[in-house]
């Protein structure tokens, strides 16, 4: 599938319940965030593929709020396919989010828009 409008297509997939990332046909390298060409090589041969949704927490920060239930975490997740993305870990107490933790992608709706978050991998 030709990529013409990276941001809108990514958002459109999410709205359809699909977590799609890009891969360069020539190098096989996965790319995130979405763009019109592979970084470095400049190859304009990116195609959309469904991500496995499996990842590992690479880094974590918690932003505390006066009311603890408003506190939230922000993480960087390494996707199984290679790229790193920013996200949030749901279904897990903020203080229990650990670097190295296995997580699975989930699409939620927030402020009326689809958003990709992760939850701890079912054991």
């Amino acid at each position: 599938m030709d990529v013409l409008h990276p941001d809108t297509e990514y958002a459109g997939f999410l709205a359809d319940g699909r977590f799609m990332i890009q891969r360069s046909r020539s190098s096989g390298t996965y790319v995130f965030y979405p763009r019109i060409a592979a970084p470095g090589t400049g190859a304009r041969d990116l195609e959309w593929l469904e991500a496995s949704g499996r990842g590992t927490v690479h880094a974590v920060t918690v932003i505390p709020k006066r009311d603890p239930k408003d506190s939230y975490n922000v993480v960087l997740v390494d996707l199984e396919e290679g790229p790193r993305m920013m996200s949030r870990i749901d279904d897990c107490a903020n203080e229990d989010v650990r670097i190295g933790m296995a997580v699975t992608a989930r699409i939620v709706t927030e402020n009326g828009k689809p958003l990709l978050v992760f939850v701890p991998e079912a054991v």
């Binding site: 941001d7 958002a11 995130f32 965030y33 920060t61 932003i63 939230y72 922000v74 993305m85 920013m86 996200s87 949030r88 927030e110 402020n111 828009k113 958003l115």
Partner: peptide, 9 residues
């Protein structure tokens, strides 16, 4: 960045 802002860093 639309790939960072929604997570409210």
């Amino acid at each position: 960045s639309p790939y960072q802002a929604p997570y409210r860093p």
